[in-house]
Nucleic acid binder design. Structure first.
Length: 578
RNA sequence: CGGGAAGUGGCGCAGCUUGGUAGCGCACCUGCUUUGGGAGCAGGGGGCCGCGGGUUCAAAUCCCGCCUUCCCGACCA
């Protein structure tokens, strides 16, 4: 709602577009292209045309207002960063896959994919004492990430704008308070943007740190899933979610382990088929998946999960490479008979069956009737499976369901992850000790937001968006219609254009000499939530039409009341949840 | 990086099987008529058929190589 200069369609950079480029798939992507909001320069890189930029500025304005209110100061850090600050934290290697490197005559640089290093460089000289803390800062900056795959228009791009904030504190407790300030500001921001963003517990990934939340908007084109319990409100990203305990079952007493010869049957699916052909009663869910992992020390670990589950690799571990699997029968690994140097870990779900079928640790052989504690031992039980629909909730008696979603924000309690390794990231405490400060970092994917909003508020064919009042490029669009557009129609439309603009509502006037159908269609693509239709017919009755596109209702309003009515409507529509 | 699809005026597409010097719709330009929901008539402009090589008298079309884009997967703050 920033644009208070009344605008005319003849001045707008806009063109009717009946067809969309065939490479637009998502409805929001189609709508943003048809409406002349964005244009692709190359894969994952978009120009914001004036309409799209207006939406973007409206979003940024809301973000800035709320972060300012939370006590954060806006600054601007460089996008072009020397490689040595990335060496100092080791992220030059950790994030090598996504870093855009620039080698110029004057040295080697990185185009910042995020700004933890840069903000520490910028802030540290001004943080000398505990008296200087806490500090909250943020910026609205372009980020660069060499994404392996850009997707869905603005949804996942290689160059994008993020509003990223950082907090600096003396200890864990005050860091949590700063975190809370950002967290609450984020809830306020997304509410104003018309997005139902759910904070969910998340995994820290390469940013590092401890407690963190993702702000997720449920959407069919989301790239993430989170688990939700309808009963107690537990919500966690699928990478971080854990299921509650399934009731354990006593091991079978009347079973004996039998080994079958199953040549050329590596992997669960094929093994099940081979064992069945031999008369064994097994299915995918009664097979034990045994996977070889390597921990931080390089030691090998066998992980056991039910055959119908997906492994969640624990932190600090990774799947073994083929070379590291020397000595193990790849495709036929089982839980039994490993040397004491190989640790065996299992998901608690392994206790939910009386016996299992699995590889026999011998090329071309599988065993059935393997019992925990009898035929094989487990060193420790840890959470090893990705949660699925229907798993029990870890907090209550409820059941988890998975929700497909888009991440619009992420907040992290970093703690000492960065300050601990950078000597300049210190302050002097009351006792005179030199200590690393406690950090938090916070990000909103600003250029992703128009796509998420459009996805929520456009028809499924990407036909047109009806923008929420808070972000609409123009809240009201005026069009004059009626036989030959009499002078009166034109004059009244122009006069309303002026007075609505003066009343503080952003407004667009259709002033081109085109047919009504084209005019209406174009205005629909521009997406104002309110249309003001000035027609010869209704003008004869002393009224104009006001169409509320959010509720798809049209009312007639006396000309002299229209400014006040629009004011009421835009206020009511802005506060309403869709 | 694996799997699939596609590159032909600004946009959407046909032509390719069976080689013969490029076409349709929309958009654009000019004029007139229109204007309460993507107008009508008449006239007009615009293409290195993704790039490079090859076969051939002749290549958008056949062959080889490369590039780009989109979708699924891997990956992902």
């Amino acid at each position: 709602m920033l644009a208070l200069v009344p605008m005319r369609t003849s001045e707008l950079v806009f063109r009717s577009r009946r067809e969309v480029p065939q490479d637009a798939e998502a409805a929001s992507h189609k709508a943003l292209i048809r409406g002349n909001y964005i244009r692709r320069l190359t894969s994952g890189v978009y120009s914001f045309l004036p309409l799209g930029y207006q939406v973007l500025r409206n979003i940024e304005h809301i973000v800035e207002e709320e972060l300012d209110r939370a006590g954060a100061s806006q600054l601007l850090l460089p996008a072009l960063q020397p490689v040595d600050i990335w060496r100092a934290t080791g992220r030059i290697d950790k994030m090598a896959d996504v870093l855009f490197r620039v080698d110029g005559k004057s040295g080697s640089f990185v185009l910042g994919p995020t700004h933890e290093e840069a903000v520490i460089e910028a802030m540290s000289p001004d943080i000398e004492s505990y008296r200087d803390l806490p500090k909250l800062v943020y910026q609205v900056q372009t980020k660069f990430r060499d994404e392996p795959r850009a997707r869905f228009g603005l949804m996942r791009t290689r160059e994008f704008i993020m509003a990223d904030g950082y907090s600096f504190d003396i200890d864990r407790e005050t860091m949590r308070q700063s975190y809370q300030r950002f967290y609450e500001a984020y809830l306020a921001i997304f509410a104003r943007l018309g997005l139902q963003a759910e904070p969910v517990e998340a995994d820290a990934g390469s940013i590092g740190g401890d407690v963190n939340h993702e702000f997720m908007v449920a959407s069919s084109i989301g790239e993430d899933h989170f688990a939700r319990c309808g009963d107690c409100g537990y919500q966690a990203n699928i990478e971080a979610a854990r299921a509650g305990a399934h009731p354990p079952v006593a091991v079978a007493l009347d079973v004996e382990a039998v080994t079958y010869s199953t040549p050329n049957a590596p992997g669960i699916e094929i093994a099940v088929k081979a064992l069945r052909d031999l008369g064994a009663e097994v299915e995918v869910g009664t097979m034990l998946k045994s996977m070889l992992l390597v921990d931080e020390t390089g030691a090998r670990v066998i992980a056991l999960i039910p055959g119908d589950r997906t492994l969640k690799v624990p932190h600090g571990m990774r799947l073994a490479t083929d070379a590291e699997m020397a000595g193990f029968a790849k495709g036929y690994i089982g839980p039994q008979g490993h040397s004491s140097e190989v640790r065996v870990i299992a998901d608690p779900l392994v206790l939910t069956r009386p016996s299992w079928a699995s590889g026999a640790n011998k090329e071309g052989h599988h065993s059935v009737g393997l019992r925990v504690g009898v035929d094989f031992e487990v060193d420790s039980f840890v959470d090893l499976v990705v949660v699925e629909d229907g798993d029990p909730c870890p907090r209550c008696e409820g059941v988890l369901s998975l929700v497909r979603s888009v991440e619009v924000g992420h907040t992290f309690q970093l703690g000492l992850t960065y300050s601990g390794v950078l000597p300049q990231a210190r302050y002097r405490s009351f006792e005179g000790e030199e200590l690393p400060y406690w950090m938090g970092c916070y990000g909103i994917g600003v250029t992703r937001v128009p796509a998420v909003i459009a996805e929520q508020y456009c028809s499924s064919d990407g036909d047109a968006v009806v923008w929420p009042v808070a972000v609409a490029p123009y809240v009201v669009s005026i069009v004059g219609v009626g036989a030959t557009k009499t002078n009166e129609v034109t004059a009244v439309a122009a006069q309303l254009h002026e007075s609505i603009g003066q009343s503080g509502v952003s407004v667009l006037l259709e002033d081109r000499n085109i047919s009504t159908g084209v005019a209406m269609r174009d205005l629909e693509l521009i997406g104002s939530p309110l249309f003001c239709i000035v027609g010869a017919r209704s003008l004869a009755k002393g009224v104009v039409e006001l169409r509320d596109r959010i509720h798809d209702q049209t009312i007639e309003v006396p000309v002299e009341e229209i400014v006040a009515t629009i004011h009421t409507f835009s206020r009511d529509l802005a506060s309403e949840r869709r």
